[in-house]
Simulated assay, not measured.
Amino acid sequence: MSTLLLIPARMASTRLPGKPLADIAGAPMIVHVARRAAESDLGRVVVATDTKAVAEAVRAHGFEAVMTRADHQSGSDRIFEALTTLDPAGQVETIVNVQGDLPTVEPAVIKAALKPFEEAVVDIATLGVEIIDEDEKTNPNVVKIVGSPLSPTRLKALYFTRATAPWGDGPLYHHIGLYAYRRAALERFVALKQSPLETRERLEQLRALEAGMRIDAEIVRSVPLGVDTPQDLERARQILSN
């Protein structure tokens, strides 16, 4: 499959303003994400941003950037605009959306997001990890996948929730918000209106499930560090400085 890795980046973070350009070990955070994406060897890597300074920083470090509108409601809308700009002829078959605040994500984890596409019926692929920390099981900031096991390392997603679910004995899975889309699935997804459960849970992926789209999740071993706060940024600096 022809694969395009897109990294949406915006400066308007409320908890950590300007975070794409935050310095980590001598390079902006967004550049570290681009490096990890390139190391996955899946395909072309492009940062999609609405900020000229981000595009300039990315290009200064040898990576591609594409400018997008500033009024997008979500990262998926931004990557769809980038896709249509970069590939108007429709040659790209698969799009991987790598969040721009994952500077320490392992290339193998990015690569794992494509594994569910071994099944032709899968529209969207994503990642999960088994929850070990008891506090995370009840933390609404930790999104859980409720899914039907297909193998020891794969779930067919039935629901995503901030609640503690499913009930009863057995593992719980933390959803990692890194997605791969078949092109037709991304086109369909961004054309859909917000759904009731998406609005209630504040989870965009529920829009796809409510529309009958198939999402499978590959289970990996660790959650990549998402940089949302100054404390997260300091942790990323410690990791990448070593």
Rank of each mutant, 00 (worst) to 15 (best):
L4Y: 07
L4E: 10
A9S: 12
M11T: 07
A12M: 08
A12E: 15
T14N: 12
K19P: 04
K19Q: 09
L21D: 04
A22F: 01
A22H: 01
D23K: 01
A27F: 00
P28S: 02
P28K: 00
P28L: 02
I30M: 00
I30W: 00
E39H: 06
D41I: 11
D41P: 08
L42A: 04
V45H: 04
A48S: 13
D50C: 11
A53L: 07
A53V: 13
A57K: 01
G62H: 00
E64M: 00
M67I: 03
M67P: 04
T68N: 08
Q73D: 11
Q73E: 12
G75T: 11
G75M: 09
S76R: 08
I79F: 02
E93L: 01
T94D: 08
T94K: 02
I95Q: 03
N97K: 15
G100M: 02
D101P: 14
P103H: 01
V105G: 04
V105I: 15
P107F: 10
P107S: 10
P107E: 09
V109P: 00
I110N: 02
A112S: 14
A112G: 09
A113I: 11
F117D: 05
E118D: 15
E119G: 10
V121N: 14
D123A: 06
I124G: 02
T126F: 08
G128N: 02
I131E: 06
I132V: 15
I132Y: 08
T138M: 02
N141I: 08
G147C: 03
P152F: 01
L155G: 03
K156G: 03
F160Q: 14
T164S: 14
T164G: 03
A165T: 07
A165I: 11
D169W: 13
P171S: 06
Y173V: 05
Y173T: 01
H174S: 13
H174Q: 14
H175F: 07
H175L: 05
I176F: 10
L178D: 02
Y179T: 09
Y181V: 11
R182F: 07
R183T: 07
A184S: 14
L186T: 13
R188G: 13
R188C: 06
F189S: 01
L192S: 08
Q194R: 14
P196H: 04
E198K: 14
R200N: 13
E201T: 09
E201V: 08
E204T: 13
I215T: 07
E218P: 05
S222G: 10
V223N: 11
G226M: 12
P230F: 06
P230G: 03
